[in-house]
Write a protein that binds this DNA or RNA. Structure first.
Lengths: 149, 149
DNA sequence: CTTGACCTTCCCATGATAGGAAGGCCTACC
DNA sequence: GGTAGGCCTTCCTATCATGGGAAGGTCAAG
């Protein structure tokens, strides 16, 4: 089948199929005499695997590992589980970061009048004079600027 | 002061300062006779504002809006609040997606032996023959993992 | 005058996805 | 046979924010 059909059946955009081939995530497709890529059902199966893995948020690099495990009938389920749990960890880390942002912002917004007046703790926090992200990277906290504070 | 100093004082990487200038997020810096960019304390202040906004996860586009509001003494705090809450919504949406992924994966991993045997519900879910997972929201499709072949 | 830290511009890469242009191929229909 | 139009091809561009690195100019201290 042509790439369009494979795309429909797998749910993977044709552009992405070509890209996956280009970067080596999938084998180079066979070509018809006229140069069209040709796919077998098992290729579509692989593409669906990739699509599901992407839906789980796996990077293409991890997906390459998952594909290898999938194809390895001697695989240890422990290896799959490890990959999966590492990914869960990464997701949790990202979630925590986003929640920190969202909660901080929600807190500030809760204290913002949200009316016609200009006073706003959100803007004021962003514009605060103090040294800011020192917390994020342990910079030298020496000279505070200005005695106010 | 030179860009390196401004970078240290603001916490914004020098490369990023140049980039912000290039895309118009900040004004073009004044130049010394030899072509070095020159920054005033108020420029550093702006950079810190940007850094904090980035730490909150705002896109550069939104930051441009926030900067405009910051500079507008006649601003309505309601405008700031709206921006902030829109962003909170976006964050929450992203969080929800990630949590869906993480939870689904955790669930699968919980049912994976994680031993030397190859059988693994994680791989089997990814490789399922059925029509694409359409969405893994609504994730709870009963486990029909055992009977497939 | 040399050294080394700093600055400049320019190019490239990331990750995954997508849009579009220019041109070839295929098929259905008249 | 001719043509419309849908599919395919490659190639280029862009996203978003970040950063690496090269080649070369500038500056201050020794």
């Amino acid at each position: 089948m042509n790439i369009g059909r494979a795309s429909k059946e797998s749910g993977v955009n044709a552009k992405m199929i070509r890209y996956y081939e280009e970067v080596g995530l999938i084998e180079k497709a066979a070509r018809s005499p006229s140069g069209y890529r040709s796919y077998r059902p098992c290729d579509v199966h692989t593409l669906r695997f990739i699509k599901r893995a992407r839906d789980f948020g796996f990077s293409m690099e991890k997906i390459a590992d998952l594909l290898a495990l999938w194809r390895d009938r001697e695989r240890a389920s422990g290896d799959v589980k490890r990959l999966a749990l590492e990914h869960v960890d990464a997701l949790d880390t990202k979630i925590a970061k986003l929640q920190t942002m969202a909660n901080a912002l929600r807190h500030l917004a809760a204290h913002c009048g949200g009316d016609e007046r200009p006073d706003c703790p959100i803007i004021e926090t962003l514009a605060a004079e103090e040294r800011p992200p020192d917390r994020l990277h342990k910079a030298d906290r020496r000279e505070r600027l200005g005695g106010r504070a």
